[in-house]
């Protein structure tokens, strides 16, 4: 506590900013670890359930069991759009058949793309803060160090003494800012890279699922 109390106002401010960056970064890391882990595991379980179950309405009734999977959201959106098209077909006295002439498949494809985009946005939420922390925290720490060293040298000039006991505390206090900047930045950069990789994998899974869903719809429901 003593080292913090002995620093100047600017260095204190820098340390508080860095502390904020670090706390929020770690909070995002924990949150994203949980989110990505659940998304992966529930996607696996959902795919298994999806291929086992033959009926879309049965799958749709169970989607809440896999709520954290982005594939579930895609399925819900696709199924919703399919249901609308089929309802329109019933009105035309052609139940269980959707027309490709009026872009029925395209409608489903568009709804799947929209769902994919919204899921990507949800998965990437907060990761930009990690990138910002990784990029700026070392510089903020460096600013605190430079300011601290300037203050230390000013103090040396005023006291007229350049002994180790006068110089060292100021320099040590100043360097703490850089150290904390790095402590905040390193996990943030590592976390950002890790989550980007995991999100790319999930995007790939969503694209594959969309394609599969459209294939099934075209095989089973589209008018020949």
């Amino acid at each position: 506590m003593t080292f913090f109390a002995g620093t100047g106002l600017v260095v204190k401010l820098v340390l508080l900013i860095l502390l904020y960056f670090s706390v929020v970064s770690w909070a995002i890391i924990f949150y994203k670890l949980l989110q990505v882990h659940r998304a992966n595991s529930e996607s696996e379980r959902f795919l298994e359930f999806f291929w086992k179950t033959k009926r879309f309405d049965a799958i749709n009734a169970q989607v809440d069991r896999f709520a954290n999977s982005p594939l579930t959201v895609l399925f819900s959106e696709g199924y919703g759009e399919l249901k609308k098209l089929m309802d329109r077909g019933e009105q035309k006295e052609e139940p269980d058949v959707i027309s490709t002439d009026l872009g029925g498949i395209d409608n489903i494809s568009r709804s799947l793309r929209r769902a994919t985009t919204s899921e990507i946005t949800r998965l990437e939420k907060y990761t930009t803060f990690l990138a910002t922390t990784g990029a700026t925290a070392p510089f903020i720490g460096l600013f605190g160090t430079v300011w601290g060293i300037m203050t230390a040298f000013k103090g040396i000039g005023e006291t007229g003494s350049a002994s180790l006991a006068v110089v060292a505390p100021g320099i040590a206090e100043a360097l703490i800012a850089t150290a904390i900047g790095l402590v905040a930045a390193i996990p943030a950069v590592m976390g950002y890279n890790h989550f980007q990789h995991k999100i790319r994998v999930l995007i790939g899974e969503m694209d594959s699922f969309s394609t599969e869903f459209l294939n099934i719809v075209q095989r089973s429901f589209a008018k020949k």
Binding site: A27, D64, S76, Y79
Partner: peptide, 15 residues
């Protein structure tokens, strides 16, 4: 059509 309810813990807990 209904979107599944996401059960992930809030960001406040992580914070």
């Amino acid at each position: 059509n209904r979107r599944p309810q996401i059960k992930t813990g809030g960001f406040g807990a992580s914070m």
